[in-house]
Design a protein around this nucleic acid. Structure first.
Lengths: 189, 189
DNA sequence: AATTCCACTTATCAAATGTTAAATTAATCT
DNA sequence: AGATTAATTTAACATTTGATAAGTGGAATT
């Protein structure tokens, strides 16, 4: 077996051939056109996604305005963890920003494999640990950096996003207005 | 056996009597005087803590100034996750703000139990999931709320902290200066 | 009680960001 | 290509927050 996603995942935490097989049978592929929601606001998180190609974001509405929580590039785990772990409907949506191909995995199917495939359980533990650590780092970033510093950091860490995502999404991700971001950009580039 | 901490943890995710016993043997108790660091900056996270009584915070230095990352009340899991999962020295410290009693668990000992005690592994998975979700919610809070809204939210969620932690720690936790926080307080109370 | 120290508040001014609206540029559609 | 729409930039002004310093009050020390 040589599924691109599984090869990638195996590097994070090893899988037995049987576990590979079991996980493989859960992975579905689909193509999503630009701007479409992969998951809508109000749905409970029951599917995990990995991008094969394209670009995605998680967003929600705060006081009527669209806020981007994060951007996701290929091979990143995309999930609305607060809904997945809480079992409650999410107030967030997942949207692709370009025509994209995604791999999806049903959480129900996945969790059902945990008992018999401990290596799969541990793999996803690792994936969520990583996501957790990234979230912690994002707090540090939001808590004591200026808007400009946050922009520079994003340019460094997800430079593709700057090129491919609309300005308004980047601005809300950084916690500032579109106008403010435009000013930062104008300073020097 | 009836260890207060274990009784609390069992409610989050069940434990077999053997697992309870095994976990029990790992828990150590100690008293820490006010203002003392439980873990210093530069140490790699090798111990998990739960407060039995008192109040704690995680802090670090950014550009020479002291930044509080979070406050912890009794029974909360206290860990520097980015160091634990990354295996690298943490640039953060854990400090108690009052004379406190803590329970500590060696991560090495804990992880050694995972193979034989799957329920223990799952329990700690749950604990980290919870911490992860809280971190996500904190980002939402930092990203699009004003300083005053963040203050009101803290007053609602950790009201004890407002009464017992010094102003400067609260201010840096909210991502603002002490002076700014004092102004918010003065507005109306 | 007087002194010192520390936490908090208040005042003043500067810098950063938000708000609104207009102007410009880019993208899309026919 | 031309027309239409959306995305981005620029400008002007209001508001928030930061930085610095001075002032107030309370707690600890002597």
């Amino acid at each position: 077996m040589s599924h691109v996603l599984i090869s990638y995942l195996k590097k994070i935490s090893g899988l037995s051939p049987e576990s590979e097989e079991a996980l493989f049978s859960l992975i579905e592929s689909q193509s999503i056109p630009k701007n479409q929601d992969l998951q809508h606001i109000g749905q409970t998180c029951k599917t995990l996604y990995f991008l094969k190609s394209g670009l995605a974001r998680i967003y929600y509405f705060h006081d009527g305005s669209d806020v981007t929580e994060g951007f996701y590039e290929p091979f990143c785990l995309i999930a609305r963890a607060e809904s997945l772990f809480g079992g409650l409907p999410s107030k967030k949506a997942i949207q692709v920003l370009e025509d994209s191909e995604v791999w999806s995995i049903s959480t129900q199917g996945l969790f059902a494999l945990y008992d018999a495939h401990r290596d799969i359980e541990r793999l996803f533990m690792r994936l969520f640990e990583r996501a957790y650590v990234q979230t912690i780092q994002r707090i540090e970033n939001l808590q004591f950096h200026t808007a400009e510093e946050r922009y520079r950091l994003l340019a460094h860490e997800q430079s593709e996003v700057l090129r491919r995502a609309p300005l308004k999404f980047i601005a809300s991700y950084l916690g500032i207005t579109q106008v403010s971001l435009s000013r930062i950009r104008a300073k020097k580039d």
